[in-house]
Each structure stands twice: as structure tokens, then as C-alpha cells.
């Protein structure tokens, strides 16, 4: 595997995760629990889709076949998507979304912190810019974890269940394969075990503040590295890609 091939795949992992999470967050529009929160969630969606655009565009440039961000977003199937299993989990109730976003944001926060000094200039620049955004996402979601964890009996039970149910998809975030090996050697990517240690610490701190139990590590699903997904992704893509697929000759 060449460095370039590895890097393209790496961009898709980041870009796809951002895109799918952005798509999920945009589903909240007009469904928020408080008007102000509706606006906050849309902001998060916009940040993620923006991040996706940068990464997908870069993947296209590296590939050199003239594929654009939209070609990547709209013309790939489930088995060509490299997003995290976590990002495609359905929104569920507000607590489910908060738990998912918190876990994913904590990951992005540490990933981007490390990638800010990547040897690849584009990755480094993207990480530095995105770090500011995900720092806010992490803060926003962490505060909600605490409010729900330390709110009412009902909210505590709900958010605890959200964490318990989604936990088995977190292992997928940290898995590595040849792509990582190649890029770590080049100083472009970061060893995921380093991210995992920092992620654990952040997650634990917030869960303690929220008076919640960290779920026990049990079986973890994997998928991201091999473009294996839950059934949810196919439906998400069918909806998202409908227009360009229905009218292949049209430009939008």
C-alpha cells in the first residue's frame, strides 16, 4: 500500500464520519427540546458537514481522478463508506444523541489535537481548524451529559441507558490496520492507542461529574476499517443521495 493510497483512505475515514454525523445532526432541525438548542445542534451539523467537505475534497485531489466532494458523498455505496459505527447510530431521544456526540466529539478532540502536528500539511491544517470546532462540541455535549446525569431521576436513567447501549460501538473508533501503519511511519497519522488513553480520561472525568457509571467494556463491534456498517447507513444514504441518483444528468 502506498502512502497516497493510505492517506486517501484516512481522509475518507475522517470525512465520512463527519458527514454522517452532520447528516444525523441535521435531522434534529425543528425537533430540538428548546429553541436555542435547536440552533446549537444545527451549528454542530454545519461544522461537521464543513469538515467533511474539506476531507472529501482532499481525498479527490490526492486520487487525481477529478472526483469532487459531491462525487464522494453522493455516488458511493455503503460498502465504500468508512465512517465510524458510532456516527451512524440513529438520533434516538435527546440523551441518545448527547451520548453519541459526546463520545465521538471526545474522540475527534484528541484526534485533531494530535493531527495538528501531522507531517501532511493539509491534514495538519484541517486538524487545527477543526479542533476549535470540536472543542466546542465536546464542551457542549459534556455539559448536557452532566445536566442529564445530574438532573432528574428520569433523565439520569435515560442517559445512563444511552451510554450503556451505545458503548459497544466505541471500540470501532480505535481500531487500526495497514493504513495506520503506513501513515504512522510517515508521521502523518497518530497511533490510536494514544488517542484511546486520552479519550478514556476525558470520558471518565465527565461521567464522574455527571454521576454516571462508565459502562463495562464487553464485546465491541468493528466495521469502520472495512466499510462494514449497521443497516441504518443504507437508509441514511438512500435518503441523502436520492436526487443525484434519480437525475444522474442533472447538475445542482
Amino acid at each position: 500500500m502506498t502512502t497516497k493510497e493510505a492517506l486517501i483512505n484516512y481522509c475518507l475515514r475522517i470525512g465520512d464520519t463527519s458527514l454522517i454525523l452532520g447528516q444525523r445532526m441535521s435531522e434534529w432541525c425543528s425537533n430540538g427540546p428548546i429553541l436555542e438548542e435547536d440552533i446549537a445542534m444545527t451549528n454542530i451539523a454545519l461544522d461537521h458537514i464543513g469538515q467533511a467537505r474539506t476531507m472529501l475534497t482532499y481525498a479527490g485531489e490526492l486520487e487525481g481522478k477529478g472526483r469532487t466532494e459531491d462525487d464522494f458523498a453522493y455516488k458511493r455505496h455503503e460498502r465504500e463508506y468508512y465512517n465510524s459505527l458510532l456516527s451512524e447510530r440513529p438520533n434516538g431521544h435527546f440523551g441518545d444523541t448527547v451520548a453519541r456526540n459526546f463520545l465521538q466529539s471526545a474522540y475527534f478532540y484528541h484526534l485533531y489535537s494530535a493531527l495538528s502536528s501531522s507531517k501532511d500539511n493539509m491534514i495538519a491544517a484541517h486538524a487545527a481548524k477543526s479542533l476549535k470546532e470540536v472543542t466546542y462540541h465536546l464542551r457542549h455535549s459534556a455539559e448536557w451529559v452532566v445536566r442529564l446525569g445530574d438532573g432528574t431521576e428520569e433523565s439520569k436513567e435515560k442517559i445512563q441507558t444511552s451510554f450503556d447501549e451505545i458503548w459497544e460501538y466505541t471500540g470501532d473508533l480505535f481500531e487500526m490496520n495497514e493504513v495506520d501503519d503506513v501513515l504512522i511511519k510517515e508521521g502523518i497519522a497518530i497511533n490510536q492507542t494514544e488517542i484511546k488513553a486520552k479519550w478514556d480520561k476525558t470520558v471518565d472525568e465527565v461521567l464522574v461529574r455527571a454521576k454516571l457509571q462508565r459502562p463495562k467494556d464487553a464485546y465491541m463491534h468493528s466495521g469502520r476499517l472495512n466499510a462494514i456498517h449497521s443497516e441504518y447507513l443504507g437508509h441514511l444514504l438512500a435518503e441523502m443521495q436520492f436526487l443525484p441518483r434519480a437525475y444522474p444528468d442533472a447538475k445542482w
Binding site: I34, L35, E36, E37, I39, A40, N43, Y136, R139, H140, E143, R147
Partner: peptide
Amino acid sequence: SVHATDKEMALQNARDM
């Protein structure tokens, strides 16, 4: 103005608004 239940939420909502 914004609605918020606590000061951190008020600050974040103000930022987003």
C-alpha cells in the same frame, strides 16, 4: 436575549445565537 437554565447554557446559547 436567550433562554437558559444555567449560566454555562446561557453562555453557549448566546454564542450560538
